[in-house]
């Protein structure tokens, strides 16, 4: 028998190779973790800023982001949830997923069209951009199913709470050139100025098939479809009607609107 094939030698070689490799990998992982988390955070912050149209090449992302105020809200009551600290609120990549596992902090959904989980968490972290104490933009995290998986992104709306500023996805698995055209700057620019709610208060915004007819009375509520990516387009529509409706930020937005209107009356 070859001297390498004895039990002792086999164990020795196996264990030492494994030990050596694991030491190298853990060192690398620990050393690089700081940089990686910075990258992740910076990526998300830049998407939040760019959805609100605030991203410029001149100022750094972290500097711009310092003018953003983070708040936790309760989607069920529509109130601010001050008991949770925005800084420690789930610093993971995807906002507030942990709360969807606990039934006391989530609600059960009837369909799985938008979220892959059966439940929706009650808390969400949202972002205000203020200038001189005035709200200039509100950024809401949204997520929903596309063709290959969940798309995660940010929707920015004007302080009138009815007009869209922009929609930006930070993580998705859509086909490059087809569904991944959600990242196309030209398509993203179509969102600016679109209206969300109809006269009766329903979510009306949708991605249609084909091009929007600019003369139609519906044009304010419609976005050009992505050609060759019907499922992604429908996914985007579904996601918006879910998150902007009563199951999503609807309750909060209604309360906020009342609040802002009252403020307006006082100011006048």
């Amino acid at each position: 028998m070859n001297k390498n094939d004895t039990l002792l030698k086999t164990l020795f070689v196996g264990i030492s190779v494994c030990l050596f490799c694991s030491i190298i990998i853990s060192t690398a992982a620990v050393e690089l973790r700081g940089l990686q988390q910075q990258n992740k955070l910076k990526d998300q912050q830049s998407k939040i800023l760019s959805s609100a149209g605030l991203l410029t090449n001149k100022t750094s992302v972290s500097e711009l982001f310092s003018s953003i105020e983070e708040k936790i809200i309760n989607l069920e009551t529509g109130e601010y949830e001050d008991s949770l600290d925005p800084n420690t609120f789930n610093g993971r990549l995807f906002e507030s997923q942990d709360y969807s596992k606990d039934l006391t902090t989530s609600i059960v959904l009837s369909s799985k069209k938008v979220l892959t989980s059966k439940t929706r968490e009650n808390f969400a972290k949202i972002y205000f951009y203020k200038e001189g104490g005035q709200i200039k933009a509100i950024v809401l995290p949204v997520r929903g199913l596309g063709l290959w998986g969940t798309l995660y992104g940010y929707l920015a709306i004007e302080p009138d709470l009815e007009t869209i500023i922009g929609l930006e996805y930070h993580t998705h698995k859509e086909t490059p050139g087809l569904g991944a055209e959600v990242d196309n700057p030209r398509w993203k620019s179509l969102w600016k100025g679109k209206k969300i709610y109809s006269q009766s208060g329903e979510v009306k915004i949708s991605v249609i098939k084909g091009l929007v007819d600019p003369d139609s009375s519906e044009a304010d509520y419609q976005i050009d479809g992505l050609s060759g990516a019907t499922i992604t387009s429908t996914g985007v529509s579904n996601m918006l009607s879910f998150w902007l409706g009563d199951l999503g930020y609807g309750k909060f937005l209604k309360k906020l609107k009342k609040e802002l209107e009252e403020k307006e009356i006082f100011n006048v």
Binding site: N4, D5, V13, G14, V17, I24, I25
Partner: peptide, 22 residues
């Protein structure tokens, strides 16, 4: 010269996998 013949694939795999993770 030290890799035992029986487990040579596993040893190679460990090295490859570590490099990939790196």
């Amino acid at each position: 010269h030290h890799i035992p013949t029986n487990v040579r694939m596993i040893i190679q795999m460990t090295i490859v996998a570590s490099l990939v993770i790196l």
